[in-house]
Nucleic acid binder design. Structure first.
Lengths: 146, 146
DNA sequence: GAATAATCAGATAAATAACTCCGAAATAAA
DNA sequence: TTTATTTCGGAGTTATTTATCTGATTATTC
């Protein structure tokens, strides 16, 4: 179903984006995120914990607690999140799955894929969460952004 | 683990490539494929059955039976195989998983991904199995290719 | 015709990914 | 200080994908 990134990773991207639309310092609860983004509550909780552990988010317990960005939105790239959740295996595996495909022993699409793979990598490192958030035009997102 | 295509799909690509290196008319058994390509026997059997059903391979039972290409190798593109096994969902889903991302309501990387996605598509439709087979340098493949 | 070697078909098992549940800990607010 | 609300942590469940097993069917070869 998912293309390149796991569902966990997709949820992480969505959640961080959502949080980035909140005023700095304001906390966002799992409850709100799960509801607005339609992500299973407890599943999302695990993912957010992971992001806290990796330093991309901070958290606070108790009433009016929740999650906030661990650094300025412009400093969090898509790649940071993908790396934190899925790792970066896609950067070195043969896209056709040929076990011994390598630079020295390339499969038929090795070069071509190398270009595309770099394109994906560039897409991830060149875009930060502030930009991504700004572009979202979903009503729910807009409601948050004001 | 896999990048874009399922493991089934990767196995299918490898098996069809292997078969394409055999002289036309010669049959290749699951046993040989599973052994040389290190793919689980019965799992591969299912996949090959699928490819037969989709018309990409033909099969023959009995001693000296096995599988052969269902059409000339130059007419089977990578896309044919991917489509047969995985479908083509990767062509229309948001790469970041944003549910309502679309042309009218694009996410921040929508355009950029569209280009890359088309690149992947082109990679798949422009390469046929004859070309892919020719490039393989794995000893097992070479043994088949002579 | 018998033996053998292959695919075909369906059920089952194992591994992984996705998702749920429950109680503990923390903390803000009443 | 109590209560309510939140994250935290670990275990458990479900669904999907990957892999295995067994027997039936088909066809070749002797």
């Amino acid at each position: 179903m998912s293309i390149i990134f796991s569902r966990q990773c997709e949820y992480a991207l969505q959640a961080v984006t959502y949080i980035a639309l909140k005023p700095v310092g304001e906390m966002t609860s799992i409850k709100e995120l799960a509801k607005k983004l339609d992500i299973p509550y407890h599943f999302l909780a695990k993912i957010l914990q992971d992001l806290v552990y990796k330093g991309l988010l901070t958290s606070q317990k108790g009433p009016s607690g929740g999650f906030a960005l661990g650094m300025p939105a412009k400093d969090i790239t898509l790649f940071h999140i993908v790396e934190a959740i899925d790792g970066v295996n896609f950067t070195n595996r043969c896209v056709l799955g040929f076990p011994e495909c390598s630079d020295k022993n390339p499969c038929a699409v090795h070069e071509q894929w190398a270009g595309l793979r770099d394109g994906i990598y560039q897409m991830l490192v060149s875009r930060n969460i502030a930009e991504v958030a700004k572009e979202m035009r979903k009503p729910e997102y807009r409601a948050v952004a004001r």
